[in-house]
Amino acid sequence: MANMMYREAVLRTIFEEMERDENVVMLGEDIVGGMGTAGGPEAIGGIWSTSTGLFGKFGANRVIDTPISESAIIGAANGLALSGKRPIAELMFADFIGVSLDQIWNQMGKFRYMFGGKSKCPAVVRMAYGAGFNAAPQHSQSVHSLLTSMPGLKVVIPSTPADVVGLLRTAIRDDDPVMFLEHKALYATKGEVPDGDYTIPFGHARLTRAGQDVTIVTCGLMVGFCERVADKLAKEGIGCDVIDLRTTSPLDEEAILDSVEVTGRLIVVDESTPRCSIATDIVALVAEKAYSSLKAPSVMVMPPHTPVPFARELESAYLPSTDKIEAAVRKILAWR
């Protein structure tokens, strides 16, 4: 057991996987952290400190600083992956999938299918997502709903350092393209990480709080919010199942339905925008397959259908909060 930060868990896992398998290579903008500066290639460190020291250990052939072109980063990762490497591409901000969407959506996710299963694309695209940093609409978005809607991609959203390690190992060793979403606000959070070479399979949700009155389904940064609400309500005798999805594609339907069949009440808490989202997807799943278990209409705690605002006050009003989640639990219990 080791206590470490989320960002350290990312770095350590990449480091170990690159050591373990020489086909693992990393590429992205400014990941070397100071290339071309007076102090030398690693003088400054990358923006998220998730690649510190990799260049010194593995060299320029395996740790590649790229030009500022996300299309080129993902395109190069696709080429590497098709020719037998296991690239880890880093998008500095998840919002930049917009500029590289053709490489992600039309190429990466479709190779295996378009070539009759004869080609594989074992690439991982890591990206920092999420709001709360007063970073305005183009650097604050949660893109997992959008990525989950695209067949051919696996979408992973770890919420703890231990999950980062287990899920990132699985992602790197997986033969299909994986979108690996790291919330900016989680990088500095700490947690215990088990020893040993463990992996966490995809499509395998984690129950972080157990209760029999309300099912709260969530992922990423929101997991901690939901846990705090569940702990507070537990003192009043209100039991919440908190389900951390870990991956939205594949989706652990079984965990959600099993829980709703007990509680009869579903709340989905998510940071992406509400229309055509992972939350509406889960609400629809439950309406379709657990209709007879429901005691009340499902509730979604999500931002409004607008871009993330820049102003601090507006941004905090925009995002889900523990107060909003608690209000949702009380609302669903008050259904009559």
Binding site: A205, L207, A210, Q212, D213, G237, G239, A255, L333
Partner: peptide, 19 residues
């Protein structure tokens, strides 16, 4: 209200659904 339930410990390594 049915209340809080016991969360199983040390079962993380198993490939099993939460329930």
């Amino acid at each position: 209200l049915l209340g809080v339930a016991e969360l199983p410990v040390n079962l993380d390594g198993f490939y099993a659904s939460p329930l």
